[in-house]
Structure formats: structure tokens, C-alpha cells
């Protein structure tokens, strides 16, 4: 059963890649949608990794943009100062960004995970704001003016391939983690902490593990973002960014990875697809968001989804 699923996943991943590659190479995609490929990938990584914390660990984190920015700055600083060929530089930058973010995930995890629910949410929120304030006044990363000149030498229109590979790795790692022994422990903690502790699950360990993995991928997403745009500004990674990611997770229903992916795609494409509405764009976008939320929380629809995916959904409700 598990084997069958991994083969299916591999086939889907390859088919989507071939489809994307042909569309791009044959010039069938408009500039607008070509430009959206990397942002979509970045948002998928962010949403899936946050889903690990919110959906599977059952903790509310409002500091995901903080992890993203730490990874982004660490990885992009490396690119700015190291002048290696792109195929070495980009993977190294991604790993450095991920590791530094993971380190901060660990540091913030230790004191923060003594707290639960709303309290933890506020602590992570504070963490994100601290990161932003520090970046704002750090000279080496350009302060409020931003880190400029992030150029790995790879052509801009090829970044989507790197981004796609990172997306696949993220999904593979996180979904395997969730279905592993560790993942079951994490879900047990979410469902009932006391019961989990009583059967000998090390709650602190698993919580920190969850935070570290999520932070690692958020950091990688940040590196991709920085390389794609070429400039990093602390103001980008504010509270709103964290909420934006959270909205994707909620829209895709918590604890549901395919849901997070689809929600990330929709929420990235929708505001761009609505550009023709001119001044009414943000208004219609907000209305669409409300409707989608109502729609995706509709019980009949949830039943329908269960039939499609043929598996019982475990939401974090």
C-alpha cells in the first residue's frame, strides 16, 4: 500500500514537471504566469512546512515569516559573498539557509514550547518581530534598505526548476515524517498531550523536532525567494506574511498536505489573475477568500473530498 502510493507520487511529480517544462520551453505560458512559478513553489514549501506545526503538532505559530527571513538572509549572504558556479552555489545556499533557520527553530523551540496555544502564538509572533527589527538595523545585511545584489549567475527563468525540486523534497520529507513513528508521536501529542506523555512519548523532544523541521524548510523557501527577487527587505517578512502562510494552511484544511499545496497555488495565483479588475482587485480578492473559506469548510464538500482521496482526513479540530 505504502509502496503503491510512493510510486503514484513519483509519477505525478514527474508528469507535472514534464508538463511545466514543455509549457515553459515552448513559450506557451505568459510572462505573468512564468513569473509566478517560483512564488508558487515558495508558498507551497511555506504552507506545507507550517502545516507540520499547525496541523500535525497542533500548535499555533505566527512566526513562520521569521524563520523564512533568517534562512533567506543566511543563504543569500552566502550567494552575495561566495562566487561559485550556480550549480554548486545554489544548493549550498539552500542548505545554509535551511540549517541556520533550523538552528533558530531549535533556539526558539526550547523556551517557547513550555507554552501552549494562544501563549505560544504570541511568543512566536514576538520572535518574528524581533528578527525583523534586528535585520532592520544590521549593517552587514543592508539594514532597512535591504540586501541587494543577490545573483548566483543562474538565469532567472531557470529558477523554477530548482524551486520545483525543493518542493518535491519538502513534500517527500514532511509526508514521510508524518507517516513515520515520529510522526505518529507528533500526532498523538496533538490529540492528547497527557495520554501521549503517559505512554512514554517525549513531548518536548517531538515538539522541538517539529519546529526544527518546519523552520528548515521555511528557511529554504526564503533562500528561493531571495534568489528569485534579487533583493531582500526586512519589511517583507512582517506579521502579515506569517498570517498569509497561515491562511493557506487553514484554507487547505489543517493536517492535510495536498490541501496546503492547492491552497498555496490558489492564493498565489488569485490576486494576480484578478489584475484585470483594476481598482476592485483587492476587494474582490477578499470576497473570494471568504467564499473559498466558507466553501472549503462545507461538510458536504469535505465528504466529497474524502471520497476523492479515498482516505479519512484527520483535521486538527
Amino acid at each position: 500500500m505504502e509502496n503503491k502510493k510512493s510510486i503514484l507520487f513519483a509519477i505525478i511529480a514527474i508528469v507535472i514537471f514534464i508538463a511545466l517544462f514543455t509549457l515553459v520551453e515552448m513559450g506557451l505560458l505568459s510572462r505573468q504566469y512564468m513569473g509566478l512559478l517560483v512564488p508558487i513553489c515558495v508558498n507551497i514549501i511555506l504552507a506545507v512546512s507550517l502545516n507540520l506545526i499547525v496541523g500535525f503538532l497542533g500548535e499555533l505559530s505566527l512566526g513562520h515569516a521569521g524563520f523564512m527571513s533568517i534562512g533567506a538572509y543566511a543563504g543569500c549572504l552566502f550567494t552575495v559573498y561566495a562566487n561559485l558556479p550556480p550549480f554548486i552555489e545554489i544548493p549550498l545556499a539552500l542548505i545554509i539557509g535551511g540549517l541556520v533557520a533550523a538552528l533558530f527553530g531549535f533556539i526558539i523551540g526550547i523556551p517557547a514550547l513550555r507554552l501552549r496555544g494562544d501563549y505560544l502564538a504570541i511568543v512566536t509572533l514576538g520572535f518574528g518581530e524581533i528578527v525583523r527589527s534586528v535585520l532592520n538595523s544590521l549593517k552587514i545585511v543592508g539594514g532597512s534598505g535591504g540586501l541587494k545584489g543577490i545573483n548566483s549567475g543562474m538565469h532567472k527563468s531557470d529558477y523554477y526548476i530548482v524551486a520545483y525540486i525543493v518542493v518535491i523534497i519538502t513534500i517527500l520529507v514532511i509526508s514521510n515524517f508524518i507517516n513515520s513513528r515520529h510522526g505518529r508521536a507528533v500526532k498523538a501529542i496533538r490529540d492528547n498531550v497527557i495520554a501521549a506523555e503517559s505512554v512514554g512519548i517525549n513531548v518536548v523532544y517531538y515538539k522541538i523536532l517539529g519546529f526544527v523541521i518546519a523552520a528548515f524548510f521555511a528557511g529554504m523557501a526564503g533562500v528561493l525567494y531571495g534568489h528569485n527577487i534579487g533583493i531582500l527587505k526586512p519589511a517583507t517578512f512582517d506579521f502579515n506574511k506569517s498570517i498569509e502562510i497561515l491562511v493557506m494552511v487553514i484554507m487547505g484544511s489543517m493536517g492535510n498536505i495536498p490541501g496546503s499545496i492547492i491552497a498555496a497555488i490558489i492564493l498565489t495565483v488569485l490576486p494576480e489573475a484578478l489584475r484585470f479588475l483594476q481598482d476592485y482587485r483587492m476587494l474582490i480578492y477578499a470576497v473570494a477568500l471568504i467564499l473559498i473559506m466558507l466553501f472549503s469548510s462545507n461538510p458536504t464538500l469535505i465528504e466529497f473530498r474524502k471520497k476523492i482521496f479515498g482516505k479519512k482526513e484527520k483535521g486538527g479540530k
Binding site: 494562544d118 498569509e244 476587494l283 477578499a286 477568500l289
Partner: peptide
């Protein structure tokens, strides 16, 4: 309780995104 927080946050995001619609 968590759900209620989410609802609040979502609502606030929407308000932010609405801020300042220009004229046509």
C-alpha cells in the same frame, strides 16, 4: 478556541488587504 483565533486573524488579514482602494 483556536478556531476562533483563526477566524479573527483571517478577518484582520482581509481588512488589511482592503485598506486603501484607489479611485478608478
Amino acid at each position: 478556541k483556536l478556531k476562533r483565533i483563526f477566524a479573527l486573524l483571517t478577518a484582520s488579514l482581509m481588512t488589511f488587504s482592503l485598506a486603501g482602494c484607489g479611485e478608478n
